[in-house]
Design a protein around this nucleic acid. Structure first.
Lengths: 336, 336
DNA sequence: AAAAGTTGCGCAAGCATTTGCGCATTTTAT
DNA sequence: ATAAAATGCGCAAATGCTTGCGCAACTTTT
């Protein structure tokens, strides 16, 4: 068993004290260059790995962060969380942290509580928080560092998000400036923070150009497919020039429907959408000329993780950061 | 700060020794009923939570398990991993374990190594292993308990899986017995363990009935959409009665194509498929009459977790377990 | 009524690290 | 040359829990 080798073994083998070994590894404290290298090379040779647990106890620090995701997750959200997850584990790893996952199911915070109470994590990343997230209040009361991925109105909360508002505002302005003025907006649950922000951006697009808010909006339950189809019908009847989808889950169905109805894109009607990763490069849907807004989710998730670690380790950090976007105009839209 | 309260504080407040408090909590060792309840109620009142880290150090046990997922994951695999993840965290939680996630990117085991070397986990769950998984050999060499989700030929490895072989065998037999004999199989990467097992089951379906293996098979790169379409064309030309899809990612495209070509299902051609969760209840595709094989992924993942914990805690366990399936015959297929 | 067994509880030694303090020894400043 | 500062390293306490062993006190057996 090579796994049994401890700092004591190393110290004895080298004829130095544990203190010295510890210092050689951590780089803290006073230690001679020569000694440090001697220790380091011995460690390398004999594959000594300090016990994370003992280190934790001594430092009162776990080097773990919790990643809390909503227990109920739709197919539509999975790519988002997946990207966040990988980005976070990768970043955490670079800082020598590990990631413990946990879920919350609505009001049931039991898993989160275990994590916090048992002191198994130094901090927490909350993914896609809802408006009045009970997690936020709980964590604030526990005075444990945490950052949310997603905008929240709760004060004094570290948060990162994509700039949904400005992305949608710019998209809308862009369309309006092109003379595409009869817009139709289709979105799902308006109580969802993300949708809300995008919607507000949409409206702000009109305001920025001081134009009449001359659009049609339909909010629906996106689990009910036929309601999306009906919405599209309505849009077509009302002579909409461009359907703006609040997410690409909706967009997929919209495109599907238009395709079935033999409506040409963008000749007969245009489509614009957020590109939230449900649609893939190799998906039929995406090949169609859709003007789309892209976010860099990994970048944002990485920032969430770095910020959390900054907070944990007592460095400075920003309370709120918004991340940029790319608007990709489909060729055929551009050529108009 | 209520978080500072330790076992010592409790012991002093109650005028007993730490030993007693420890025993009251763990239930191990000898302790009087009265004392235990006194301690327990005090703990409850004052919200004392033992430090997981200290416990770990004392017991040389982390109460963490690692969940290792492939770094590169397709949209198609996400629902599977998501289900595994939730099921595992839920089960682990019930046994007072937490789950640390980690990823491996092909040959790069660095994340896994960190987890193991730092003794941050007691055991590991490996998701969807490939044929010659380097993780398996690594973990075996480290003598750390681990279980794989997915079949492996490596000896002495604890593994759980869905019974892909028998599921596909039964499906095939079923079709053949109905007189649907000209089958066409479409699958992606045959080197993928799952696909291989399903394919073998398919062939075994013919053998079981001692029938001539009179089928057409096409294996393709499922990232290349048009190759799927061409495959469907081929099937149609060769007068296939039923297309058997090796996964529902393929199935979705097959259905899409058939729909576009105005080919009726099941009048003109039948479709059978594994239902791997890419397709959702509310998806257009699924409403179409497809004969499908369903697995209970959460059940399997839960078993993986329980088995791992059994192994960690020195209880008995089975080396290999296969989980059952449901074959759902579409109404229109049944009525024939 | 004595011997044997059982029960309740505390002592103190782990578990594997980190870190404040102290003490030589060496380097720098005066 | 001498005082002051810096450097290199070890001692031992601290982190918060578990557990083997021992010792009374109480209960059962003969």
């Amino acid at each position: 068993m090579n796994s049994k080798i401890t700092i004591n073994d190393v110290a004895q083998a080298l004829g130095v004290s544990k203190t010295t070994v510890s210092r050689a590894i951590s780089g803290k404290g006073r230690i001679g260059n020569e000694t440090r290298e001697k220790v380091l090379s011995y460690i390398e040779q004999h594959e000594y790995k300090p016990s994370a647990v003992a280190k934790s106890l001594a430092e009162s620090k776990t080097y773990n962060i919790g990643f809390v995701v909503p227990g109920a997750m739709s197919l539509m959200d999975m790519p988002f969380f997946q990207k966040c997850m990988f980005s976070i584990t990768e970043t955490a790893s670079a800082f020598d942290y590990d990631v413990i996952i946990s879920s919350t199911d609505g009001e049931d915070l039991s898993h989160l509580e275990r994590l916090v109470n048992n002191h198994k994590v130094d901090g927490i990343i909350l993914a896609r928080t809802t408006q009045q997230d009970p997690c936020i209040r709980y964590l604030k009361s526990k005075r444990i560092p945490f950052v949310t991925i997603g905008t929240t109105t709760e004060p004094d909360v570290i948060q990162v998000d994509n700039d949904h508002f400005n992305a949608c505002k710019e998209l809308t302005s862009l369309l309006l400036l092109k003379g595409i003025t009869r817009l139709g907006l289709i979105g799902s649950d308006k109580s969802h923070v993300v949708t809300r922000l995008r919607y507000d951006g949409f409206v702000a697009g009109y305001e920025a150009l001081q134009m009449e808010p001359n659009y049609k909006e339909i909010f629906l339950d996106c689990n009910n497919m036929s309601s999306i189809e009906r919405a599209v019908d309505e849009m077509l009847e009302s002579d909409t020039q461009c359907i703006v989808c609040m997410d690409d889950y909706i967009c997929r169905y919209v495109l599907n429907k238009l395709h079935r109805e033999q409506v040409g894109i963008p000749q007969d009607i245009r489509v614009a959408s957020f590109y939230d990763n449900v649609m893939q490069e190799n998906d039929t849907a995406t090949i169609l000329p859709v003007t789309s807004i892209h976010f860099n989710i990994q970048e944002m998730a990485e920032a969430a993780c770095r910020t959390l670690i900054d907070a944990i380790e007592g460095r400075d950090y920003q309370y709120k950061r918004l991340f940029g976007y790319n608007i990709i105009l489909s060729n055929s839209t551009q050529s108009n």
